[in-house]
Amino acid sequence: MMPLFRANLALTFKGLIRLPGFWVPTILFPAMLYAFFGAHNAGEGPQAVYAVASFAVYAVLGVAFFQFGVSIAEDRQSAFATWQRSLPGGPAPIWAARLCAALVFSTAAVLLVLVAAAVVGGLSLDPATQLRLLAACLLLAVPATFMGTALGYLVSGHSAVAIANLVFLPQAYLGGLWVPPQSLPAQIDAISHWTPTRHMGEVAWAVVGATPIPPASLLAVAVFTVGFIALTWVAYHRDRRRRFS
């Protein structure tokens, strides 16, 4: 299994690293957005720290949507992916390599947000808080990833980028990742509580604020995770039936 994992890891990383059009915007855009708008809008004090957490979650979400959502949708239409199916070894090493790549790119994207927070926002988060935020983001990458995979198996390669943006950007706004939830209009705030991103945000805000994570948000993140896994499972099998049965 290890040689196959290594082979897939090399294929995945080389493929992505040599495609700056993918990774530069994916890992740079959240930090850029934070530097241009997030830092300025948040001002100073605790809100500034919450903004860093918000954009860190936004960064993880971007990697999940674009690395998993879009790339899976495109793969489903590629003859290369069909040829990969003809190789012995099964899909597990391919998936493990993709997950690894997603975690690495998520980490890079979160670290860039932290760098932007220090350089542009003038914030000096202590290392323990930064580590806690990074750990929380990597855990939150799990539901985000399954959201991406579900999308990847539900939409076609041609429409994947448009639909990913259509889901991703409203999710970020509704979840209070761009604008603090307190500043959202009342109706939007009411909707916000039903989005996974709001609860992902709540987890990250509690981590940087050193306050207990709201149990309702933890439960909601768990429920959304299970829901997205189930949706991925159903979409994956539907896709297999269509293409290979």
Binding site: L11, K14, G15, R18, A79, F80, W83
Partner: peptide, 11 residues
């Protein structure tokens, strides 16, 4: 051998 080989362009 695939009939249509759209290999990853970066490899």
């Amino acid at each position: 051998t695939p009939q249509n080989a759209d290999f990853p362009e970066q490899m």
